[in-house]
Write a protein that binds this DNA or RNA. Structure first.
Length: 507
RNA sequence: GCCGCGUUGGUCAAUCGGCUAAGACGCAUCCCUUUCACGGAUGAAUGACGGGUUCGACUCCCGUACGCGGUACCA
């Protein structure tokens, strides 16, 4: 019988959730849903010095906004609770001890200062980062270099120690990555990783393996930065005797800076003016605020869509996908091997596309939670109509107010410069007359208003084209927005007349 | 340094040995529109380099270069 697919996302609550993280969740989620499997959220909070209060809830909020809710996790529970590494502390110890007794791991008593000293002493031009490996471990204080008596003496004295993995000599570790195919490492090139820290907390290496095993994870997706430590994990699965249940690995390509070198970071967003996190993140210590895609005015559909396409495509030229479509079309073997540069222009294009195809009602509902709209409380039907009229000129949700405020309140300022040169008494008279004659229009709809406007223009012997721009500026304040007559019809007869009157005084 | 992974236009990318190398973003020009957009059309722009294998290589193999990642009692 085939095992049920179970995947997990395991963030460390040390700050905001950036695009790379969200894409990892997304691919996990797509894969799980496609196979009718479970998507688990596990929290890696074993590094207390870097743990940031509130970051865990923030991650959960982000997943909620994205619509990528886990089936099991710290806030909802599940059969393998707890889902927080810090709460599973006692579990890891047992496995670390097992490894020691089997000879696959050992106790190491070196203090941080001693490690630093070792690195300084053995550092050479050719080897700038000496590793705690099969050669150096003989020179350090640990249960391999020291006698049993010495070890038990230090233990009984309460000397702090860590448990390190004993990397085998001269072995080749080969595994198949779902994206990269066969990958191999020489055991000698990997150092003796710490598995259990002096404070009793496991490191990531021990924790992922133990948790993935206990939680029956079948497929493990993570960023490419983890590829070099994969051999450590594979050996752990083997030493712990769980090899047959080891998950299949997939190391996802990195998301790179739009310019320059390296991974996309929070700083790049600040530097180049675009969001990098899913939602606003306020660092509780520094108070520093990092803008999120949500607050920047991105639709979650667009956000997921653009992330999905950053490193994957289905081979067709389709670029717009709903989450549902992604679930059906996604295949892990079509995920790219190479990293992808993040392009904010393309990201905005995705959002624009999604705004154009999202129902007006749905957009209106989101807008109602924005400050401008909240304060004026427009009628639902009216807002929806306005959204329909301006949506194609909005790239992010935050553009809506700028593009539509004149529907709700008169323009605060006029773009005088655009009409100044051609403004004259004849035109002034025209608008005076126009204002009076619309009074008698029973049908205040765009065609009727337009007819009235053009007839009067002809009568006054002015080209309608010369009057259109001034009219627009009277109603809108600037050179933008939908058809003028539609605007007039939408704001209504009274408001139109009022705006003409006010503008006439100012022009 | 060492180890690993990559490399098609400025960016995202298709191609699983037949290429006159798709498509999208961005850019440019034009049409539509007496605003701003939407839409439509056109254009400029790509296989890192060197060897092999093959009738034939962007595609497979090997080197080189370059890029990225890792090299923590961080994840």
């Amino acid at each position: 019988m085939e095992k049920k697919v179970r995947v997990r996302f395991a963030p460390s609550p040390t700050g905001g959730l950036h695009v790379g993280g969200v894409r990892t969740v997304l691919y996990n989620y797509l894969f799980a849903k496609q196979h009718g499997g479970d998507f688990i959220l596990r929290i890696e909070d074993t590094d207390q010095s870097r743990y940031v209060a509130g970051a865990e809830q923030y991650i959960i909020d982000c997943l909620e906004w994205c619509g990528l809710n886990p089936d099991e996790g710290p806030h909802i529970g599940g059969p393998y609770a707890p889902y927080r590494q810090s709460e599973r502390k006692v579990l890891y110890r047992e496995y670390a001890d097992k490894l020691v007794s089997q000879g696959n791991a050992y106790y190491a008593f070196d203090t941080p200062a001693e490690l630093e000293e070792m690195r300084a002493v053995f550092k050479t031009e050719e080897n700038p980062q000496p590793q705690y490996n099969s050669i150096l471990r003989q020179k350090m204080s640990n249960s391999i270099s020291m006698g049993e008596e010495e070890v038990s003496r230090l233990m009984s004295e309460g000397m702090p120690y860590v448990i390190r993995m004993k990397m085998p000599d001269n072995e080749e570790i080969i595994f198949t990555d779902m994206i990269r195919g066969e990958v191999s490492f020489r055991s000698d090139s990997v150092d003796d990783k710490v598995l259990l820290k002096a404070d009793g907390m496991p490191t990531y290496h021990l924790a992922v393996v133990v948790d993935d095993y206990l939680m029956k994870v079948t497929h493990a997706f993570r960023g490419e930065e983890w590829l070099p430590s994969a051999p450590v994990h594979i050996l752990l699965w083997k030493y712990l005797g769980w090899q047959s249940e080891m998950p299949q690995w997939a190391h996802l390509p990195l998301i790179l800076k739009p310019d320059g070198h390296g991974k996309l970071s929070k700083r790049d967003g600040e530097r180049l003016g675009f969001p990098v996190f899913a939602m606003d993140w306020k660092d509780p210590i520094s108070g520093e605020l990092t803008t999120g895609f949500k607050e920047k005015g991105f639709l979650r559909e667009a956000f997921l869509n653009l992330l999905a396409m950053l490193g994957w495509n289905d081979g067709s030229s389709q670029e717009i996908f709903t989450l549902d479509e992604l679930v059906h079309h996604f295949t892990i073997d079509r995920v790219h091997k190479a990293g992808a540069r993040f392009d904010y222009e393309k990201a905005k294009w995705f959002n624009h596309e999604w705004i154009k195809r999202t129902p007006d009602k749905q957009i209106s509902e989101i807008l109602m939670s924005q400050e401008h709209y909240k304060s004026i409380q427009p009628a639902k039907a009216f807002l929806e109509k306005v959204v329909g009229m301006v949506k194609e000129r909005c790239v992010v949700l935050n553009d809506f107010w700028e593009q539509s405020s004149f529907f709700f309140e008169p323009p605060a300022a006029y773009d005088n410069a655009s009409i100044k040169n051609k403004w004259n008494q004849e035109k002034k008279d025209f608008f005076q007359e126009f204002s009076e004659s619309i009074e008698s229009l029973d049908d205040f709809e765009p065609p009727a208003i337009e007819d009235c406007f053009k007839n009067l223009a002809t009568k006054a012997n002015i080209k309608p084209g010369e009057l259109l721009l001034p009219f627009r500026i009277m109603l809108v304040g600037g050179k933008f927005g939908p058809q003028v007559f539609e605007i007039a019809a939408t704001i209504g007869k009274e408001q139109t007349k009022k705006r003409i009157a006010v503008a006439l005084l100012q022009f």
